[in-house]
Simulated scan of single mutants.
Amino acid sequence: MLKQFEEITPGMEKDDVLDLMGSPTQTQRFHGKDRWTYVFYDKRIKFVKEVQFFEGNAIYVGDVWQPPAEKNAVAMDSLNDRKNREIDEQIARDVEGHRRSYDEYEKKSKGEDKVRYVPDFEPVR
């Protein structure tokens, strides 16, 4: 199987790959591409190989494609968590600012923001 897989080249059509390798172990459609995964053993060594097709022609032949480390799911999740925390902190600051502004407005509208002097009068007898 390994020698047969090495005969696959980019540009081959799906039918040619099927004739050469047979049915894939797994198929997947991802970002407009068909991904066929072949799992086979050669001298007790497990091989997992992949062929990607776009519009019926092979565009990638090799090991199972993995996204770059900065784009994998764990990295993206941690980046999104950090952004979400920043947004939550900004919202909390905004809420506190609005609360203070409302308290100041309320004091101003009631006139509590001004110091009022009320003189002491002695009662008239």
Rank of each mutant, 00 (worst) to 15 (best):
E55L: 08
N72T: 00
F40T: 11
Y60Q: 05
V124Q: 12
D103S: 05
R125P: 02
E122N: 15
D94R: 04
K83S: 10
V124P: 00
N84Y: 00
E70F: 09
K110D: 01
F5D: 07
F30D: 15
S109M: 09
P10M: 09
V74W: 10
T9D: 12
D15T: 11
T37F: 05
G11N: 06
K33H: 11
R35K: 10
G97D: 13
A92Q: 13
G32M: 10
P24I: 03
I8S: 02
G62V: 02
R116Q: 06
A73D: 13
L79S: 12
R35N: 11
V118Q: 09
H98T: 02
P24M: 07
Q66I: 02
P119Y: 02
W36P: 13
F47K: 08
A69G: 06
T37A: 07
K3S: 08
L2A: 07
Q90K: 07
G62S: 12
D19W: 02
E86Y: 00
M21P: 14
D15H: 06
E6P: 03
D113G: 03
R93H: 07
Y38T: 10
Y60C: 07
V17Q: 05
P119T: 00
L79P: 03
D19S: 06
D16F: 03
Q28W: 05
N80S: 12
K114R: 12
M21H: 04
V95D: 13
E89S: 09
P68N: 08
Q52I: 03
D16L: 11
A58M: 03
V51T: 05
V74N: 14
N84S: 08
S78H: 09
F47W: 14
Q26R: 10
D113S: 06
E106V: 01
Q52V: 00
P24H: 05
A75M: 05
F54P: 03
K33L: 09
I87E: 13
M76D: 12
Y38W: 10
G22P: 11
R85W: 04
G22R: 01
K49N: 07
Y41D: 15
N80G: 00
Y102K: 03
